[in-house]
Amino acid sequence: MLAYTIKRILQSIVVLLVVGLVAFSMFQYVGDPVDNMLGQERTQADIERVRAQLGLDQPFPVQYWKFISNAAQGDFGISYRQKRPVMDILRSSAPATLELAFVSGLFALIIGITLGVITAIRQNGFGSGIIMTLSLIGVSLPTFLIGILLAHLFAVELGILPSKGRGETVIIGGWVWSVFGTQIQFPSWRTGFLTESGLRALILPSITLGLYQMTLIMRLVRSEMLEVLRQDYIRFARARGLRERAVNFRHALKNTMVPVITIAGLQLGSIIAFAIITETVFAWPGIGNQFILAIRAVDIPMMAAYLMLVSVMFVIINLIVDLLYFAIDPRLRVDRTAGGH
């Protein structure tokens, strides 16, 4: 198990290095950073100076290594558009996106699994048919359209929920602790969880963002569940006279979890990226909004940093998924139990 985990971590690092290479190549070949740093009035000496300052006179592998090691320390350079460190921009806008992603991910998982189980158990029921058809409509409506419609209905027509921004937010963290004489500063975090208007502002964007993932998870749980319900051990569980609830949840649902968390992990990982759309619709001040602005302005450092951030999120979620496999499936814990008998 330990060997497997280490192997997966190494693989994740390779993935991050490759994504880093893509991001770095954008720096190298797309646009000229010198153009971006200097205005129209520049001398050859200015150009040489900036090139040396940015390390552009170094060979490719050296520059790549520098890029990676800087990125690992959170240094993605200066935004072309805003002329301030990319990391500062990310740090101030990440909480908005992460809170939104967290709430919509939770929504997608809980509702998605519940509906998936219900539609699988009542495979030919009337309610299941309605849920399945509705889910197809959900998949066929682009996220931005759902957002527009929800905002119009609940904010403009009914006027019960806000359609723009995060509402009131509170800054937490930022405390400085002194441990054995060393100063440790906690990162500060602007949260919307602590005020009523902050929570209300989360409702529409979270539903908009989570709906698509929810339908996918629901359909996946349903099809996996139908597959498992055909297995011999489910027939045997029925033949032993277990209650339907025990058969469905204790025996069937647990066995669907390995494929479900694999795909659900991928889906939740992409929530960060899909937040771009929701943030645009609801004027949500998160990193997705920053990314859109960066794309339009060809702000390469911002784009590269965002790319790396999304990959890191993915890798972390997938590592968690890998560890969950061990918790769910005893067959994978072979090396631990082998000595037991």
Partner: peptide
């Protein structure tokens, strides 16, 4: 009645037992 009055043994023992329990 199933399990209590009638017991059943299936063909393939590799697939009749729930692998996760």
């Amino acid at each position: 009645i199933r399990g209590k009055d009638i017991g059943m043994v299936f063909q393939d023992p590799l697939t009749s037992l729930n692998p996760l329990l």
